[in-house]
Structure formats: structure tokens, C-alpha cells
Amino acid sequence: MNAANDMDVSQPTRIFRPGLLDRIKTNNGIQSDEALARIMGISRATLQRYKGGDEPSLRAIANLADAFGLALGEIVVKPVPAEPSEQREAVGA
């Protein structure tokens, strides 16, 4: 595979909007991450990975949108790259 495909594996293409999951919990009186995870159809551990910046599954995004009446664009955003691609190429990554 080429470098562009390798980059896709290491960098998520979409992440949950920063702070969204905690705001949803607070605004809807959800008491725990486990309860929110159940609503989303995922495990609490998976929810923690998503909060840490892992790319969410389409199912989790859709379940969240359905449960809280949100549009997909309100839920996910493109992540900010960790470093410019020119630097990655110079390092040989």
C-alpha cells in the first residue's frame, strides 16, 4: 500500500466533536458513561476510546443521532492533524 493509505490507518477521518459526549450526559441527566454507552450500543471501554480520539463507528454515531435528535454534522468533525504532513514525510513516516 502507499503512504496515503498507511496514514488513513493511523489517523481517524472523523472524531466526536470535542466535549459533545460529556455535554449530552450533563444536559440529559445521564449519570454515567456506562449509561451513555448503552444508549449508543457500545461498551463503556469503547466510549472511553472515542472520548480519547478514536474514530467512532457509524452505528455509534447513528444511535447517538437518533437518541438525541442530532444531525451527523453536529456529532462528528475532522480531527486536527497531530503534525503537518511535510514533517511526517521528512521524518520518513
Rank of each mutant, 00 (worst) to 15 (best):
A4F: 15
A62S: 15
Q48N: 11
Q11W: 12
L58S: 15
L58I: 15
K78R: 15
M1Q: 11
N63I: 03
N2S: 04
E83C: 11
L58F: 13
F68I: 01
P81D: 05
V9I: 14
R59M: 12
M1A: 10
R49M: 12
R88I: 12
G29R: 03
S10L: 13
P56R: 04
A71E: 14
A62K: 14
P81N: 00
L47W: 01
R44I: 04
Q11R: 13
D6I: 14
P18I: 11
D22Y: 11
Q11L: 14
D6P: 07
Y50D: 07
P79I: 09
D6Y: 13
L20F: 08
A82H: 08
E89F: 09
R59Y: 11
V77D: 06
L21R: 08
T46C: 05
Q11H: 10
E83H: 09
K78P: 04
A3D: 06
S85V: 14
L72E: 15
G29I: 06
R49C: 10
A67E: 08
K78N: 12
L64Y: 07
T46D: 05
Q48V: 06
R49E: 10
E83P: 02
E34P: 04
R44G: 09
N28R: 06
L64G: 08
L64M: 04
G92W: 01
I42W: 08
A60G: 06
A67L: 02
A60E: 02
R49P: 04
V80N: 12
L70S: 04
R49H: 11
E86T: 13
R17P: 03
A71N: 14
A82W: 01
V76P: 04
E34M: 04
G69E: 07
M7A: 08
L36W: 07
Y50A: 08
G69Q: 05
K78I: 09
A93G: 12
G52T: 00
I39F: 09
P12V: 03
D22H: 12
F68W: 06
S10V: 14
D66R: 15
Q48A: 01
G53N: 01
A35M: 07
N28F: 05
V76C: 08
A62C: 12
I39H: 01
A67Y: 06
Q48R: 11
